[in-house]
Structures are given as structure tokens and as C-alpha cells.
Simulated scan of single mutants.
Amino acid sequence: MSKSDDSLRSLFKAGISSHPTNPPLTTTTASLLIALYALVYFVPFYFSRTARPSPTLSRDTPSVIRARIGSVTVSCAVCCATTYLVLTQTGSAPASTSKVLHLMGIWPPALADSARAVLLTALLFLGPLYSYLIVDDGWRSWLALEPLRELWEEWTVWRNYVAGPITEEILYRSASIPLMLAAQAPVKETILLSPFLFGLSHFHHFYEFRLTHPQVPIAAAVARSLFQLTYTTLFGAYATFLFVRTGSLPAVCAVHAFCNAMGLPRLWGRVRRPWEWEESAVGGQRSSSVLWSVGYYVLLVVGAVSWYRNLWALTQSGNALISPEAFLSM
């Protein structure tokens, strides 16, 4: 490990240095900036006629998706520039450009760490991967490169698996987490605050859902949004953990895209081949083998246990933004 790496860690890690420097900003200021970033990300949607949804214009309309991708790209650039200026132009010991790029997970890219982070996350989805690739014959579509064709042909697919993960991770990890580190915030606060704001930034989907689905009872719409807030916050905490452990923006972008592609794992119900679902729907004979379901749930448990056991080993990195010792104070 180089001396420059040591100085980077002593300057920015929360509560690790025995002789902490004067931080360039307070934890409160960092938190307010992150909250402002969250607003900057989605509020501009409603200023533009092309990006703003309506009862007759869904958020999944291609023109809306294109407009929003353009908007969040500008928002991410503004927020990243703000973080860069805060860290390089303020405080008693302003950071150099190389240090800021490291804190933002941009350089070094740490591609090997990214691969390990995706492998770790895939363990959580061992059951769903088995269901998709084996039970549903998803491997055939990958051999035919169908997912890649959908990526280029469907704007919703591009938004969900490319534009969304990249821009959200740039804003909520790359631009936000360095502010908490620079403020020498406690590790727990660093890992939990930004994810909570990340979850809240999805709550505007409640308004959009009500616009396009006015017939749905408001209680059901609120429950839907609260559920989304919960799992986006949990994912945000996990992504932040990976970010500070690997110091890699590509790692969290790749994990985000992977999780979007997999969706939430099935936690109950029977696993069947696609044609068996069709037979069941028309009252046909249920020829599904119980072994499909047994295999799925066994792999789901095995994957979860393997994920837990490898959580620290597969996220260990020389590019880490917070040392392992700092997590002991959580």
C-alpha cells in the first residue's frame, strides 16, 4: 500500500485517525447536500413537459424515458462537480484530484473487485438464477443473445438495466458517500443515511402510479410505495456497503443492474416449467415435478448462507474507503 493511500485513509475515514483533521464540512452539511442531490435527481422531471407523466402519458413511454435520462445525466454531472469542488476547495487540508477520484470510486476502477461483488450478490440469487436459467430455459435466450437485443430495442430495458443503475449509483454513491467520509461521519450513519434518501427518492412513483392507476385504492397505492421504499432503502444500504468496501463505482453499478434484472426472489409457491403454468391455467393436468421447487428453495437457502459467509471475504479490497476496523464500531 502506498503512502498516498495511507494519507487518503487518515484524512477521510470516519473516526479512524487518532489525530483527526478538521473536516471540510460537518455531517449535517453533508447530509443536507445529499438530500439536495436527491431532489436534484427527480424534481426536474416535473419541470419538463416531455419528462412529466400524466393520466395519458406513462413513465414507461419512450419519449418520457429519453427525456428523463437526459435530465438525470445533467443532474449527476452537477452533483459530481459540486462534490469535487467541496473536497478540493474547502477545509484546512483540501484533497487532491487523485484522492477525490478515489473517494468517488472512479479511479482506480477495481474491475476485479467489481467481479467479486457481482459474484457475492449472485449467491443471494442462486435460487432465482436456477429458476430462470434451468427451469425456465433462460439459457436458450442468452445463447440467442435475446437479452442484448432487448437492451438496444426497448427503452424500458435500457432504463432499468443501464441508465437507471449508472445514474443512481453515480449520484447516491459516487457523489454522496465522499461527503460523509470527508465529514468524518460515523460508519453506521454513512451506510444508512444515503440509502434512506435513495429510497425516499423513489417515493414520487406513488404520485405517478396514482396518475396512471386512479382506480387502485389509495391504501393499496400507499402500501405499494412503502414496500418499494423498504426494499430500495435496504438495497441502498447494501450498495453503500459494497462501495466503501471496494472503493469501486463500477462494482455498485454492476450489482445494481444485476439486482434490477433479477427482481425480488420468490419466497413461497411452487416452481414450474413455463408450459406447466399454462396447463394449470386452463385446468389441465399438473405434471410439475416437486423436485423443481425443492431444488429452488434449497439453492435459495444455500445461496443466502454462502452470501453471509463470504460477505467480508469477497468485498475485501486494497481500494477500500473505510478500513475493516471501522466497522467494529457499528
Rank of each mutant, 00 (worst) to 15 (best):
P62L: 00
L33A: 07
T56D: 14
D60F: 13
I34P: 03
G15L: 01
S48T: 06
S48Y: 09
P24D: 08
R66A: 06
F47E: 00
T21L: 05
Y41A: 04
D60K: 10
S63D: 13
L85T: 13
S75T: 06
G15T: 01
R49L: 10
A14V: 13
V40Y: 05
S75N: 08
T21D: 06
S48F: 08
S75Q: 03
I16C: 14
P44A: 03
T50C: 10
D60I: 12
R68A: 00
T82L: 15
L36N: 05
L57M: 11
P55Q: 00
A67G: 12
C76M: 11
I34L: 05
F42Q: 10
L57V: 15
T82D: 06
S63M: 07
T82P: 14
T27R: 02
T28S: 09
I34V: 10
S48G: 06
V40R: 02
Y46K: 01
S54Q: 10
T29S: 09
S58P: 15
P53A: 05
S63P: 14
L36W: 13
A38I: 04
P53W: 06
V78N: 01
A35G: 03
S48P: 11
V74N: 07
A81M: 06
F45A: 07
S54M: 06
P24E: 09
Y37N: 02
Y41I: 10
T83Q: 11
P23H: 09
Y41Q: 04
G15A: 02
S17W: 03
C76R: 04
V78W: 05
L25D: 13
S63C: 05
T73V: 13
A38K: 03
A35E: 08
A35F: 10
T83H: 07
L36Q: 09
R59G: 12
L25I: 15
R68Y: 10
T56R: 07
S18K: 04
V43D: 01
A38T: 10
F42C: 02
S31I: 00
L85R: 03
P55T: 00
D60E: 11
R52H: 05
P62W: 01
A14M: 08
T56Q: 12
V78L: 09
Y41G: 04
G70T: 12
I16M: 13
I69C: 12
Y41R: 02
R52Q: 06
K13N: 12
Y84F: 12
G70C: 05
S58K: 08
T82K: 07
T50G: 08
A77P: 15
P23E: 04
T83C: 08
T26H: 01
F45S: 08
R68C: 00
R49I: 10
I16G: 13
T61R: 11
C80W: 08
A30D: 03
I16T: 14
P20F: 02
S18A: 12
T73G: 15
Y41C: 07
L39Y: 11
S75R: 00
P53Q: 13
F42L: 02
L85V: 04
K13Q: 14
Y84D: 06
P53E: 12
S17D: 14
V43T: 00
T28C: 02
L25T: 15
P62K: 00
V74T: 10
T82S: 14
C76P: 00
S71M: 14
R68H: 09
I16N: 14
L32E: 07
P20T: 02
V72E: 10
C76V: 09
